[in-house]
Amino acid sequence: MEIVKEAVAGTLESSDCLVMVKPYEGLKVDIESIVMERYGRRIRQIVEDVIKSMDITSGYFKIQDRGALDYCLKARIRIAIERAGVDNVR
């Protein structure tokens, strides 16, 4: 499924993250985090897992992380995708 419009979820407050999604050819994930050095790998894994679990095949994902725990990342990504709406084009 594809992301059909731009949407955001979350905030830039401490312990939160801001997720922006928009339509894109293919899948692209950009992550910016205050804990990149120690948790960048794990954050990317979570983002990819959520995208996969929601059967998203194309879209651009930008994560601005301010130290969100796993659960918060998941919730924010999921809501961003829901707000954007997905389209089963294939």
């Binding site: 979820a9 979350g10 725990l69 659960y71 918060c72 998941k74 919730a75 924010r76 809501i79 707000r83």
Partner: peptide, 15 residues
Amino acid sequence: KDAARELLREALDFL
């Protein structure tokens, strides 16, 4: 409201 519901559900699972 939508984001808060989702956040809370995940939080109750995780914390």
